[in-house]
Write a protein that binds this DNA or RNA. Structure first.
Lengths: 343, 343
DNA sequence: CCCGGTTGCACCATCGATTGCACAAGCCTG
DNA sequence: CAGGCTTGTGCAATCGATGGTGCAACCGGG
């Protein structure tokens, strides 16, 4: 009944969290002194070493934890960097998530990632939620509609950056998809030639036609064919989404040669290709040969694999943070070379 | 100079976010009415339909976004569910992250995951950060020291739950590691027998000896051997962490038979095993056969693979949320059966 | 002893949203 | 028409942390 602060600590359940007011009372000092000591600005406020130590000790004893909601509300900045992420089910996005968190923390900022399952509506809803949490920056990774997110965030004064897929309203960092795909295609063609004894146009599977990365990779794919005078028939280009199921069922319905080379546009698509191979017994020594954009340690060991184009996640994130620091205007586009991994 | 609210909207950069006070002013009403309308409690406050509509329209026009820091500060609950996650580099944790987010959102709550790189210090620091964000619940996934986290959170009044690895201070959901490992071991033994023509004890690689899951899986592994009267020599049990490098270098330094079966304790460990195989040309038709705890779509297709024990992430998370609802006391332990996947 | 300067700390407004409560206006009933 | 009830809305306190400002107490020099 004494004004409510500090409920029963016994149950643990209803125990109020300790605040600077509690600590101030125990230490016989003022909340502002406690605040200054605990957030490190106490020298600037000429708090004595003795009091600082006492407060620190009491805070520790009481298991004090800052209420960031209150702190962020009062300050102008939240130090939160938000990231929107389509999926966690492959190494590429997994690596982005891990490195993003590590780099963010290294800067003394706090990372918040939220996963949007490639659903455009969820993307915007997630952006809305992150803005509500007062994120200072928002990174949209592989967003289907990055510009909508940028526009929304701009109206809330939150700077955004695009990763993996570029947008026109915010600085973007993407892989050099063209060169990566061209080099990977060259590799697949030459390996297929070595194995099958002749150079045929490859198949291309996976991706969305509206998607910048797919377009660039297709351009690299065609370029590598053109270099050696090969023409790719339209029916060898299968672009119906990244999903594994779609890839599998599409291959199932096609009339395919006994041996062929295939450019797979992502590891997710590759899952479908591999399932098809398995089901139809099309792999092994004399079956198809594939190369894949994106790297996966196990996919790399599959016998039919002839190479993978790994996106350089480290350099990509480095570039993102450089852009955050530089705050460039509008739609800068940074392209990061891929790493070609041949077994 | 007019008291600061609503800075220049032109630049977009310094534009103050719209608040309920801005909207109230535009609508010629009070902030409390705006708040009630925008958070849905307006009927309870008997706000007229007309005013509600006007406020809603203005909010939309102004691109209003709730300041959750302020909202959470005022309310008792944050509706945030925090999760601590060791890594994002395998399908198991990736699936946990995705499903956790989906389920959390479905309940109208907000998920925040933070990745701690298997570093015990980071785990506690992350827990501290999440508590600072006033999470209403915290789920510790694969934590190296779950009890330390639970203890810390308990002192802040935040209920915790353990996932993947159990603790003694909070309810835990884990796989039935014993049965899963036993079944997988049986499978590997029988496949190795079929291929190599005799039943030899398998090798066991990966995991930490301090870790409950490793202990349980080892128990299942030994049980499956004991069932058929096989004794496992101590030097076939290699438990020196989950890391791929460690596994690779350990195998490198061992004197191993030409053909053998191996139980691999995680896909991460498997990466090392597979690298070793590759480097030493130990795979292929007549080399080793492995089974692995955890599932990966590409690892599942490797020729040496004879089976994987997939952890049932859906049911695990379902169980976690059931526990959250039930708020059971102390250290309940729910064990979820694994799904044995044989090619 | 007086005065300017320093030291050490407390007071209080503030961030934006929420909510108990007061209160005016309108309506109905007797 | 008085008194009670309903309807619709505003006021002001509050959540916890922060930082500008005010102000005692003390020190040293003239």
């Amino acid at each position: 009944m004494d004004n409510g602060r500090r409920a029963d600590d016994g149950a643990g359940q209803t125990a109020k969290r300790t605040t600077i007011y509690d600590i101030a009372e125990i230490a016989g000092t003022s909340p502002s002194a406690v605040s200054a000591v605990l957030n490190g600005t106490w020298k600037k406020r000429r708090i004595s070493e003795r009091l600082a130590e006492r407060i620190t000790r009491i805070a520790e004893e009481q298991g004090y934890a800052l209420n960031l909601q209150a702190s962020v509300l009062r300050r102008e900045r939240s130090n939160i960097v938000g990231m929107i992420m389509p999926k966690y089910d492959n190494r590429y996005f997994g690596a982005i998530a891990e490195q993003f968190e590590a780099r963010t923390r290294r800067r003394g900022l706090f990372p918040v990632i939220t996963c949007t399952q490639r659903e455009p509506e969820l993307e915007l809803e997630a952006a809305r939620a992150l803005v509500s949490y007062q994120v200072d920056w928002l990174i949209a990774t592989g967003a289907t509609d990055p510009d909508r997110i940028s526009a929304f965030c701009a109206s809330a004064g939150v700077p955004t950056f695009n990763l993996d897929l570029p947008g026109s309203l915010a600085p973007s960092v993407v892989s050099d998809n063209f060169a990566g795909a061209r080099d990977l295609t060259r590799l697949i063609i030459s390996r297929a030639h070595a194995e099958f004894g002749r150079s045929e146009p490859l198949y291309f599977i996976g991706g969305r036609s509206s998607d910048h990365n797919t377009a660039e990779r297709l351009r690299g794919f065609l370029e590598a064919h053109a270099e050696i005078g090969l023409d790719v028939p339209a029916d060898r280009i299968i672009i119906r989404g990244y999903g594994a199921e779609k890839a599998e069922s599409t291959l199932e319905g096609m009339d395919l040669p006994q041996r062929f080379g295939i450019f797979v546009n992502s590891t997710i698509t590759l899952e479908g290709v591999v399932r098809w191979m398995q089901r139809n017994n099309r792999g092994g020594e004399s079956g198809l040969r594939f190369g894949c954009f994106d790297w996966d340690p196990f996919a790399a060991r599959l016998p039919e694999n002839v190479g993978m184009a790994e996106q350089d996640v480290s350099r990509m994130l480095e570039a993102v943070f450089e852009l955050i620091d530089a705050q460039p205007a509008g739609n800068v586009l940074r392209q990061i070379p891929c790493i070609l991994r041949a077994p």
